[in-house]
Design a binder for these strands. Structure first.
Ligand SMILES: NC(=O)c1ccc[n+]([C@@H]2O[C@H](COP(=O)([O-])OP(=O)(O)OC[C@H]3O[C@@H](n4cnc5c(N)ncnc54)[C@H](O)[C@@H]3O)[C@@H](O)[C@H]2O)c1
Ligand SMILES: NC(=O)c1ccc[n+]([C@@H]2O[C@H](COP(=O)([O-])OP(=O)(O)OC[C@H]3O[C@@H](n4cnc5c(N)ncnc54)[C@H](O)[C@@H]3O)[C@@H](O)[C@H]2O)c1
Lengths: 209, 209
DNA sequence: ATTTAATTGTGAAAAAAATAACAACTTTAA
DNA sequence: TTAAAGTTGTTATTTTTTTCACAATTAAAT
């Protein structure tokens, strides 16, 4: 399996999403410049990225949407089902759960952890809510390697360490805490203020004349 | 004003956040390698980034936390208050509103737009909820340049176009739609499935021996 | 006084990412 | 037949980003 940078993986996921859209519109074939337009990218970049996934287009009809999708998915997806843990079922946790539900064929939230007794043992979006004390047991039992953190920042680091301790390899952190772990752990801190501040910075850009 | 890439701006925002943490712990001075450790970055990268903001550290005591913060903020922040529009006050919209409330000295959500009559004219987190039909009027009146979209994907593109039409320069899109606009518009598509899929891809990485 | 130790700012080098360029290919048109 | 048009895969080039490396600086230790 060839390796790929985070940027390339991000774009492949984007191509997959765009291709699914085309597929649902019954588009059969597509050229790199079509994808490029929708992705705001250079066509050469797309062709280069697609070299990784081992599917050859035709110089006449470009890429077959179904076949290309299949190859991208084969490249991206793990072999087995990927279980994901969600920590915290507040407002944000609920909308994450809701959003993820049924969106992916093999990656799915499979366990929720809470400290609020009112939420524990309930089943939401087909997913059981466990007590946070049972974290280690459930994570190990389900071979969970991915966790989404949506609890208050004060407890985030402690929980993150516990997660990694019991085998989690990737963390998506929505709290205000800045998580930082050795490189073999994949961490994405998704503090939305970063997006807002970047948006503010780049909205200052005056149109060049 | 020197220009900066999105990556550099992202890191500067991160430094700012880390410095605020240090400040709140009454740390007076800090070295590039301290920041580097917390940011999981190379110290040279940090020093290079800081060249942009025009603050010189001392070879003995490193950077004065307060002074450096001041310079980063001066570099990042616009001169005037930045008003932000939030489109959609569902589950996600509410948690975004809640999260952003009071978090930034000069960037703040200032108008909410909805189509649900039950929500219109209510005031949440100090912010008025308007009817989506009033979008153009309110956005222009408040010189809103930044919008956060948290409505269903089917209407996202239409609303995004309306926003840009009335002067919005940056859009943060949480819906499933993939927005794509000319380069002078800053767009961040924050589909969380990208994060989950990336997390899944990189959690496969076996520890190298 | 001198040396040692530690850090900064920055030019130079290296690495990574994006883009350009083009041979090879296939179809259609002339 | 041959030429033209349009695309791909991939190499080469350019651009951007990151890292290295070191003179300059300062304070403390000797
Ligand atoms: N990045 C973003 O875009 C964004 C947006 C909104 C909120 N947030 C952050 O996400 C987090 C959750 O936000 P929210 O609006 O859902 O808050 P919330 O208060 O509605 O929900 C937090 C939930 O976490 C649970 N919890 C708290 N401590 C726990 C623990 N130790 N173990 C297990 N469960 C625990 C609580 O019982 C509660 O249900 C907060 O840190 C918030 O600041 C981030
Ligand atoms: N990126 C993410 O991480 C993430 C997470 C959760 C949800 N989402 C997406 O964000 C969007 C909102 O999610 P939610 O859970 O808040 O959904 P929701 O149904 O709770 O809220 C949607 C809100 O938008 C309003 N709305 C709908 N059409 C509108 C229009 N034309 N003008 C103004 N308001 C309108 C509705 O009245 C409702 O209040 C959805 O597209 C969802 O898929 C994204």
């Amino acid at each position: 399996m060839k390796t790929a940078s985070e940027k390339v993986v991000h774009r492949l996921i984007l191509y997959k999403k765009l291709l699914k859209n085309f597929q649902s519109k019954s588009v059969r074939n597509i050229f790199s410049h079509n994808l490029a337009e929708h992705a705001s990218l250079n066509p050469a970049q797309i062709r280069r990225d697609l070299m990784l996934v081992g599917y050859d287009g035709s110089t006449v009809s470009g890429y077959n949407v179904n076949d290309l999708l299949f190859c991208i998915e084969k490249f991206l997806y793990p072999n087995e089902i990927q279980n994901v843990a969600l920590i915290g079922l507040g407002n944000l946790g609920k909308s994450i759960l809701d959003y993820c539900y049924g969106r992916h064929p093999i990656i799915a939230i499979n366990a929720i952890f809470e400290k609020d007794p009112n939420k524990i043992n309930r089943i939401i979006c087909g997913t059981r809510c466990y007590h946070i004390d049972d974290l280690e047991i459930i994570v190990k039992k389900n071979s969970i390697k991915i966790a989404i953190i949506a609890i208050s920042s004060s407890v985030t680091e402690t929980i993150a360490k516990r997660l990694i301790e019991c085998g989690v390899k990737s963390i998506i952190n929505y709290s205000n805490a800045c998580l930082s772990f050795p490189a073999e752990i994949y961490v994405e801190n998704r503090d939305m203020m970063f997006a807002v501040e970047k948006a503010a910075f780049f909205s200052k850009k005056e149109k060049e004349i």
